[in-house]
Design a protein around this nucleic acid. Sequence first.
RNA 1: UGGGCCGUCGCCAAGCGGUAAGGCACUGGGUUUUGAUCCCAGCAUUCGCAGGUUCGAAUCCUGCCGGCCCAGCCA
Length: 563
Amino acid sequence: MSSHEENKPRHFIQHIIDEDIQQGKNDGKVVTRFPPEPNGFLHIGHAKSICLNFGIAQEYQGQCNLRFDDTNPHKENLEFVKAIQEDVRWLGFDWEDRLYYASDYFEQLYGFAIELIKNGKAYICDLNAEQTREYRGTLTEPGKDSPYRERSVEENLDLFTRMRAGDFEDGSRVLRARIDMASPNMNMRDPTLYRIRHGVIHHQTGEEWCIYPMYDYTHPISDALEGVTHSLCTLEFEDHRPLYDWVLDNISVGCHPRQIEFSRLNLQYTVTSKRKLTQLVEEGIVEGWDDPRMPTIAGLRRRGFTPASIREFSDRIGVTKSENSVEMGMLESAIRDDLNEHAPRRMAVLHPLKVVLENYPEDKLEELTVPNHPQNESMGTRTIPFTRELYIDRNDFMEVAPNKKFKRLVSGGEVRLRNAYVIRCDQVIKNEQGDIIELRCSCDEATLGANPEGRKVKGVIHWVSAAHAVEAELRLYDRLFVEPQPDAIKERDFKEFINPDSLRSLTQCYLERSLADARAGDSFQFEREGYFCVDADHSHNKPIFNRTVTLRDSWAKIEQKQA
RNA sequence: UGGGCCGUCGCCAAGCGGUAAGGCACUGGGUUUUGAUCCCAGCAUUCGCAGGUUCGAAUCCUGCCGGCCCAGCCA
């Protein structure tokens, strides 16, 4: 993967870090962190951030911590904590012994809050949420000072101590930074630092605390305590950087990480907002966080994406500060490249049509030895049974060719059976309704591993021996939305753009015999059809395969043009 | 009309004053028992627009235009 790493251009964050190192900052050390909030599953956008943070650490021989930003116990839980760790690990990254929680720092955070209060930099405010909003002003008008802004240090200290002790109700008071209510940056208008939350059980600290610190206060301090050098986050936090810096400038931590913002990934035909993904799961629009249609890491994994393909994708999309809208083709290309190289080939018939070779003896069985990969001998061979009765795909037969470019089987025509013989269609058998139910063919015995004499047979189709076929369910997935940017159209709800055909399940598909012992997670290329992986719910008695992605299909393009 | 940020090919993205990398997509052609893969070729006289500085500007300056983000006791 990414064999041209040497000549790959470096992105702006690498430039910044290079300069910092050149100037001797942080003794040349680089420490990053990936800071998810455990309130949902990780998605492809997080994958970009994970690859960036862990990738930077690897490149500079530094470290990347995994830190749960768990300051809002109301929305967070252990299930997500576990799933996130599994996903990061699966992607191929290792935080070693550096698994942290912002809640590890609650006591220290509290101490720094006392320090701010003592220095007149923070105060207890009794305004309720609505009043606070009114006092904040608007984007174009300055806010007003809270009537509680001038409380004495002693009173603030007393009140904050009692806040922690549980003397006050939820929402009755908050701790606020004392900055500037007239700042053009809304984040600097005396932001809330601590709020009161009774009766929630925090997944790490249980009922130890009834006050919880806010992100803007917690994040810079957590970074500093961990010795993070470069705190990478997305663009929407750009306005928060002055506050990030303010917090660190006004307390006595001897470390001041540099926050750098990059643009988040926008993948077409999907959504990556946790709120919306949660909605899809909770409303049963998909079957769970790991539904193969979900852009979650768990969903992509179940769909058959490999860690390497996701890392490669992250690499290809780059890191910048500009708004972007990445085409699905980018992701698909990354997984095709990986699977083309590594997935063993197999044959599977999705829409079976019976073929009887009238000149092939009824009791004859040939075991044909075929390669698992056409370009890679080291992947070995397998045997496939060849018999008188076979299945081919209905789409590979037409009574008359629709045009001169059609090179599959037609009535009276010839076609190559992949890895086997050339056959000719002699007779088409239909039922009373006129549906084609069977083909009577003859096979040319001289064409096993050899071209037919005196004529050219252009078409090659795949097949499966009827008697040996493994019946399976094949799940064909398509994009979850029909609109490239489902959440960009603000007048409409994103759910209006759900693709009703995002899952098409085919039962009674026939797979070649060797697929009988496939194991959950295995990936194959079903020749001429696409890449499929064995589903998590697969069993020997109920085989289920998910289509990861189709093969590139230039025939489909030709057909489309003619239509 | 407050503040912050962004505008280079259909999409992503290099470029940092010396005359437009690369990837995806697309279009031709070759090889092929997968209409796959692979190979070869093509694909921005132009960098949101308009001025200016300069021998020379995507890169510097000025002014416009367009887009994104911010008024949670969410992150």
